[in-house]
Simulated scan of single mutants.
Amino acid sequence: MNTHDAPFVRPVLAALCAASLATLAACGGSACFGFDGCSGGNGTPNVAVSGTAAIGKALASATVSLSCASGSGATLSDGGGHYSTTLNATLPCILTVTAGGTTLHSLAFAGGTFNTTPETELMLVYLASQLGTNEASLIANFQNNSQFQRVLENQTDVLAAQTAVVANLQQRYAVTLTAPAFLTTPFVVGQAGVDSDLGALATAGAIDVNGMPDPAAVSLLSAAGLAHPLTTTSTPSSGTGGTGSAPGGMM
Rank of each mutant, 00 (worst) to 15 (best):
F8M: 04
F8S: 05
F8H: 04
V9T: 11
R10M: 12
A14H: 00
L16P: 02
L16R: 12
C17E: 13
S20C: 15
L24W: 07
G28Y: 02
S30G: 14
C32I: 11
C32R: 15
D36E: 14
G40I: 12
N42R: 02
T44E: 02
V47F: 00
S50R: 14
S50C: 11
T52H: 08
A53Y: 07
G56R: 00
A58P: 09
A58D: 01
A58E: 01
V64G: 10
L66C: 02
S70I: 10
S70M: 08
S72D: 14
H82T: 15
T90H: 05
C93S: 12
T96E: 15
T98D: 12
T103W: 11
L104I: 13
A108L: 12
F114C: 10
E119K: 14
L122I: 05
M123I: 08
V125A: 06
Y126E: 03
Y126A: 01
Q130I: 05
Q130F: 07
L131N: 08
N134Y: 02
E135P: 00
F142I: 12
Q143W: 04
N144E: 14
E153R: 07
L159W: 03
A160M: 09
A160G: 02
Q162T: 02
A167E: 12
L169E: 04
L169C: 06
Q170V: 05
Y173A: 06
V175Q: 00
A181W: 07
F182A: 00
T184S: 07
P186W: 09
F187I: 08
V188I: 14
V188Q: 12
S196V: 03
G199K: 14
G205Q: 09
P213K: 11
A216G: 13
S219Y: 03
S219V: 05
S222P: 02
A223K: 14
A223H: 10
H228M: 06
T233D: 13
S234Y: 05
G242V: 11
G244I: 03
S245L: 04
P247H: 08
G248C: 00
G248I: 00
G248L: 01
M251W: 08
